[in-house]
Design a protein around this nucleic acid. Structure first.
Lengths: 133, 133
DNA sequence: AGTGGATATTACGTTAACGTCAACGTAAGC
DNA sequence: GCTTACGTTGACGTTAACGTAATATCCACT
């Protein structure tokens, strides 16, 4: 059981960036704006698997067209921390708003997929018509 | 049957913008970059229902996080126009790539919705626990 | 004739999300 | 001791997608 290939618990900046498909500049930028806060060994950044998870969430947000600020808010939703009742309520509101946006997106994607299917069919049709004669 | 409230075939810029939730500046910007090309009555822009449809497609793209250039490409897919075989083939490729992106988005949305559900449940839980004692 | 409202053009300003140097430190290997 | 690779901190540049005046025109009222 020893020496089993376990997932590493620490990452250098280049490793993290390579596996995530971003540049180091981007990772540092995310740190500048407080989206990531890796620990340091001397000057050098050391990323934990928690940092890696945060980054993954950020990138998922980007794929959905969210701004970094949006992603920050959503990620913050995951750890309410402050157990103030008002905050919790407004948090629930925010969650429901996000859900509405996502449902709208689901709808949009469905329609766009339909459109694409039609376009593709038309293309293939045109190709066949051209090919025969 | 006369005088039935038919959808208007022409729109002023303010009407179009109001119903679409954008500013006139935005509409003019889309024209600047060639995304819209309304006809003119003198100097004044006149938008057809085709223009309106294009705008709707652009806005749908925005909701999905697409850039205006992306939207332009997708919209152009709808009217192949040039029936060159190579173009059709690369168009089909583009369509398939788009479809992959959309499927990824579907996946992301599903996961994000799950996360949000959990967060909301945790919030409600926290509220109840605080409320009781 | 004057006023108000919608339209137009021109042009500079702004924000987000990085890109792109420059200049430097440090540890590894030959 | 020199190169190579990876790391650091500035700091200015860039692109997209508009915002924000400033100024001018045209048409309908009063």
């Amino acid at each position: 059981m020893r020496n089993r290939a376990t997932a590493p618990a620490e990452f250098s900046i280049t490793d993290l960036c390579k596996e995530s498909g971003i540049t180091t500049r981007t990772a540092r930028h995310y740190e500048d704006i407080g989206l990531l806060s890796p620990s340091r060994r001397g000057q050098t950044r050391v990323y934990s698997s928690a940092d890696r998870t945060r980054l993954r969430l950020i990138l998922r947000g980007k794929r959905l067209g969210l701004s970094l600020e949006d992603s920050r808010q959503i990620i913050d939703m995951y750890e309410p921390g402050k157990t103030n009742v008002d905050q919790l309520n407004s948090l629930i509101d925010a969650i429901r708003q996000q859900r509405e946006k996502l449902n709208q997106q689901l709808d949009d994607i469905g329609n766009l997929l339909k459109d694409l299917n039609q376009s593709e069919a038309a293309c293939i049709d045109a190709l066949n018509t051209t090919g025969d004669s």
